[in-house]
Design a protein around this nucleic acid. Sequence first.
DNA 1: GAGTAACCGAGACGGTACGTCACGTCTTCTG
DNA 2: CAGAAGACGTGACGTACCGTCTCGGTTACTC
Lengths: 194, 194, 194, 194
Amino acid sequence: MEQALKIERAGRPRDARLDDAIVAATIELLEERGYNDMSLAAVAERAGTSTTAIYRRWKSKSELVAHAVFRTEGDDVVAETDNIAVDIASMVRWAAEKLARPAALAAVVGILGESRSERVARSTAAAMASKRVIDRLNRAKVRGEIRADVDTRVLASLIAGPVLNEVFAGGAAHVNERWIAELVSIVLDGVRPR
Amino acid sequence: MEQALKIERAGRPRDARLDDAIVAATIELLEERGYNDMSLAAVAERAGTSTTAIYRRWKSKSELVAHAVFRTEGDDVVAETDNIAVDIASMVRWAAEKLARPAALAAVVGILGESRSERVARSTAAAMASKRVIDRLNRAKVRGEIRADVDTRVLASLIAGPVLNEVFAGGAAHVNERWIAELVSIVLDGVRPR
Amino acid sequence: MEQALKIERAGRPRDARLDDAIVAATIELLEERGYNDMSLAAVAERAGTSTTAIYRRWKSKSELVAHAVFRTEGDDVVAETDNIAVDIASMVRWAAEKLARPAALAAVVGILGESRSERVARSTAAAMASKRVIDRLNRAKVRGEIRADVDTRVLASLIAGPVLNEVFAGGAAHVNERWIAELVSIVLDGVRPR
Amino acid sequence: MEQALKIERAGRPRDARLDDAIVAATIELLEERGYNDMSLAAVAERAGTSTTAIYRRWKSKSELVAHAVFRTEGDDVVAETDNIAVDIASMVRWAAEKLARPAALAAVVGILGESRSERVARSTAAAMASKRVIDRLNRAKVRGEIRADVDTRVLASLIAGPVLNEVFAGGAAHVNERWIAELVSIVLDGVRPR
DNA sequence: GAGTAACCGAGACGGTACGTCACGTCTTCTG
DNA sequence: CAGAAGACGTGACGTACCGTCTCGGTTACTC
């Protein structure tokens, strides 16, 4: 899947427009119907192609969904300015953008519904994002922006966690700038050096 | 389900042992295979019964799973002592106990995979738990245990949210007492009156 | 398949009308489209049922076709009068009735298109019919109706063989009573005691 | 197929060894797996080439199979000596050689599985062979070798028909010289002038 | 103690999706 | 232009599961 580069040039090349059309159709249908009620046949039809073309690109429905929803276009997980407040806010905002969409909920359902073994492979992306957040927090600790005795792994879970909580409770709507500001305020107060 | 009112209806009564066997088999299979790969036929077989008996008790697969995993035996969501630190810790602990089991993940998948309309019905349980948490926090605000300007809804999401985050990242294992203590410490510092 | 008798009575009984509807639809579509262009989905639709109901009854498309076309309602393969000429004519007529239908050609295609191993199982029906024919011929030999030195197995192939030949050459149409009479005349002359 | 006219067309010439390799692979796989389970991809792989090369030579799978199995190298269908017994025997022998191979069965399946319109084109070869047989029999009638009132079309079906019957019954193995002699003996006795 | 109502098991039913496979066509690069 | 590779659409196959239903048979309460 997702083969590295076009080292191999034999054969008819993939139609790049299909990739886009499939991904777009996937997201649309995910939002309209949810994971279980989204069939690959429907995706294919809306994308103007066939299910075989989909299976040529992704191994399974859940893999397609994971790629369509969570492909990391750029690596903008972590902003790094010299202001930890600004950076934490941007990390929360990033999590919200990723998760507070109907399609994201549906994608999580798909990924988590898989058997355990297949799941681990998929979770690496999330793990990497998490690692970058923790790295940023550790640097803040070194700089004295946050208390030295804070467990940054716990702190990291205070960034994406609340967003997740809202999404699952069905309250993704009120994750707005005010909400984010309040969250950042509390968390920062909690880790600020005394 | 309906067994609340035991009006002693006519006919052969339900075999109570089946209820337990079905619930137990459901949790086992959920942990072994995940939501999608757990079929009701397999549950029935392991429970030594038939799918008919299951459908007589629950309307659908997701309802069975929701009941099996999240049946609230007692309503001990919120402890109310006179110490907010203790109470928040116990709320986090409650969330962890509910969520940090393999089956819980699977159950969430089942509930979230439903079409939107069916989902709301199920989510009321979570909403009620959330409401009780917020009520407790509001009382703490009145008593002056936490700052007056804190948005308690945001604060509530700082209790279950981090647990959710760990569960989804696959790190439910290290949600232990130390982790909980650290979390409570940060959060409390963030909302303590200055 | 075709389970012996109704020894087992558990469970919802099969809908007998479906059996008939499926067989009828199979034969119709076989004649309209031929074996390859007859899909089980089309059979199911015309029979007013689903493909699952078909697969519950027959293991594969070719097995369905074999059963639908060649089920031996009565065992009227061999008439046994005291006149060998009459009996051979009736055997030829039986073969013609079985084979000189469009659906029969299609069924043969299906059966013969299978891999060898599956094929043998199916051919037992034909083998049994053949055996009965040979038995009748052997009795005729004992009675002196045909020459003692005739190989009845070769003789048997002179009964169904010519019919097969016409069917495959596309000339099933002119297998009529005159044709059958001529065939019987030649064959009988060839084996009559001198 | 079209390679009859070798007008030396422009461009790279076809690799003649591929023709042979494809035909050989086709026959092998036909015998191993039967018609339906023989895929062109498998043929291409065994022949060390690609499906493109196959489709450049034959229009379809059934056409390839028909050509591979029934290509008539020489037109030796009918021997014409002055002895009708010898000639009929050689015609039977020719039919047996053509049909009593596993691949022949498979080829017939392929041809008969086609839609009716495509089938007629292919069946002309068989029709021509049949015509030559009938012509020979008519000449025998004129010479008085067989009875004047015999329908030679019925008689012709007594030559290839029994062979077909054995092949379809799975008994191609015992179509040997003794079998042929017995067949010819019966048939000749049946049409000999009295 | 006979009825009756609801249970129990087995298994068929329609529906729908999944993932695989083959066919025959098309598109690209290489010889 | 042939050849190899591999994309593409079409469409069938066979499997699995869901949730419903229809049987024969069983168990308790009720009259």
